[in-house]
Every structure is written in C-alpha cells, then in structure tokens.
C-alpha cells in the first residue's frame, strides 16, 4: 500500500520535473530536480487531486514542519500520513 503511494508520488514529481520516474530518488531535493516554487505548487495540487487529500503547504513557509518538502522521501512520507488520516 505505502509502496504504491510512494510510486504514485514519484510519478507526479517526475512528470513535473520532466524526467523519467527512475531518475527520481528518495534523497532528491526539489532543487536537485530543478523544481522551483511554482513547480512545487503544481506538485502539491497534483497530489491533492490524485489522493483526495488536502496538503497543508504554504509557499511562504517552505521549511514549515506541517508538510516537509525537503526531499522526495519526505513528501512521500507526508502523503502516506495524510492518506492514513483520511480513512
């Protein structure tokens, strides 16, 4: 279940970064992937649509602990938590 979520998050990130999903590693930061703040906002939107969740992300507080976006893995963990809270 959580592996499936991780894969779906990576597909979203890869699509936004315009790279193959295999090139997205858990340790990648948004910077590594060439994603700026607009790219990140689009990823958050795609995640909300894909998983039916509401992501507490504010572009003014990128380092907020509410939703960690420091690495791809952090985003995956955040989505797993949000989907678990949903049910």
């Amino acid at each position: 279940m959580s592996d499936d979520i991780r894969q779906r998050v990576r597909v979203i990130v890869a699509e936004q970064a315009m790279i193959d999903v295999e090139q997205v590693s858990p340790e990648s930061t948004m910077d590594d992937l060439g994603l700026d703040s607009l790219g990140l906002v689009e990823i958050v939107f795609a995640i909300e649509e894909e998983f039916g969740v509401s992501v507490p992300y504010n572009a003014n507080e990128p380092n907020s602990e509410e939703f960690d976006i420091s690495t791809v893995k952090a985003v995956e963990d955040g989505v797993i938590k949000l989907t678990a809270e949903k049910v």
Binding site: V41, V44, F45, Y57, N58, A59, N60, E61
Partner: peptide
C-alpha cells in the same frame, strides 16, 4: 488558495513570522 501564498491567520509584512 491554489497559489499557496495566503496566510491563514493575518498579514504580517516584514515580520520574520510573516506567512502570506
């Protein structure tokens, strides 16, 4: 809301704690 630049509490220009 979609742009993710709005504050949920209030507008605090120039303050370190500003959030949108």
């Amino acid at each position: 809301e979609g742009l993710r630049v709005m504050s949920k509490d209030t507008c605090r220009p120039f303050s370190k704690t500003r959030n949108g």
